[in-house]
Design a protein around this nucleic acid. Structure first.
Lengths: 217, 217
DNA sequence: TGTTGATAAATTGTCTGACAATCTAATCAG
DNA sequence: CTGATTAGATTGTCAGACAATTTATCAACA
């Protein structure tokens, strides 16, 4: 699947950050990765460089790379941009979703079921799919890429937000509003609904415990 | 200025793409860069990797990297995203610009002068500064970075758009509308004005000659 | 005890050189 | 002139090296 060895490392690190195995602040030591993957330093370093410009890793001279930490403000800033981008995506996607609403409605149904069963991991996964579906339906590769990039940087936060409160229910109500607007072909409303949805999540992040943004050494 | 050698190469390539010395489609051969900069392959390759994930360079296995080409649709897609992002920036920047409008008004004046003197290069540079000023005033590092990334990918196009028509004048009228709204503290209006402004540029790109999007190998 | 400073170990930045895999260009046969 | 073959260029990847710098270790000292 991954073309080069560099891709393999990039994908592995990305996935590890997403699922929380690599916590923000963790330093990535070249030697660990050369050892784990059996690749050379060149390859590992090239992978690191790729991840630096996506914003997933930071880098300090002579200290190597580490998983980006986020201050509360930074997290909120990301949500702002994300709201804007996904709002645009919802607006642009409306036309296509209206034409073929089946997949979207089906996903909506699955989300409802997951809430019913209080299956949080499933809900989280379906939630990701939901947003991805809309981002893709917008038919704009740059928009899609930007959305996915930001989504990756805050994925770990999102999960915690969902866990914290029983925000799941509110969240799912939002989904319905978005889907309704899109199926009705009301692009403007879909956009507003999406923006509101994400800004609501932003609010939750703002109230999140300090621990999540600890800036220990 | 640039910390590492990698940074040096990254900056040089970025600048070369911006000012059109590196045309879309150009292949970047490692050997050329090791030779020109006197750096080793490792360093040059790391720089390439960094630029791949910003979207400035594409990469094909065993064929190396080349400057990203844009189809007409891709260019228009970028403008869509950019319009939204810069619109958001204008909205967020309004508060600060309203508090200290001097710099902005001064820039506006310089732009007017450049138009008066028909000094296109100067206008282009000031135009870039204008958009950068607003993006920075929004006080959101992620927004800023995203805007700058997209701006870099289409900079060469923008210049051609300006040259083509005497679109400079219309463009500058737009600027005034944006500044007026911000100085008046009307964030919503500033956002709309900015979106309109950029979507207008997008229209010009759509009408641009096919040559600019030629996909010769 | 706890701080300080010197020393050793670990880690990164960068270079050189190597070789297989693959792409590209030159060459030759028909 | 076209298609096939060969030689050359370029990339993917590795190993090993060494200086610069950070981090850890540990003993001397207040």
């Amino acid at each position: 699947m991954a073309g080069s060895n560099v891709d393999t490392v990039v994908d592995a690190i990305t996935e590890a950050v997403r699922n929380g195995r690599l916590v923000p602040g963790t330093r990535l030591v070249e030697a660990d990765y050369t050892h784990d993957f059996g690749f050379s330093r060149s390859t590992v370093r090239e992978a690191f460089q790729r991840l630096i410009s996506t914003g997933l890793l930071t880098f300090e001279r002579h200290r190597g790379v580490s998983v980006c930490k986020l201050t509360r403000k930074q997290a909120v800033d990301i949500y702002r941009v994300r709201a804007n981008l996904e709002g645009l995506a919802a607006r642009l996607a409306t036309e296509q979703i209206k034409r073929a609403p089946e997949i979207c409605l089906e996903l909506q149904q699955k989300l409802d079921d997951a809430v019913e069963k209080s299956d949080l991991p499933l809900f989280s996964q379906l939630n990701t799919e939901f947003h991805a579906l809309i981002a893709k339906a917008a038919d704009n590769e740059y928009l899609l890429q930007a959305i996915q990039q930001f989504e990756t940087s805050i994925f770990w936060l999102q999960f915690r937000v969902l866990v914290g409160q029983n925000a799941v229910f509110t969240t799912n109500d939002d989904h319905r509003l978005i889907v309704d607007a899109m199926v009705a072909g009301d692009a403007k409303r879909a956009e507003r609904a999406m923006v509101d949805h994400i800004m609501k999540a932003s609010k939750l992040v703002q109230e999140l415990d300090d621990d999540y943004f600890k800036i220990d050494k």
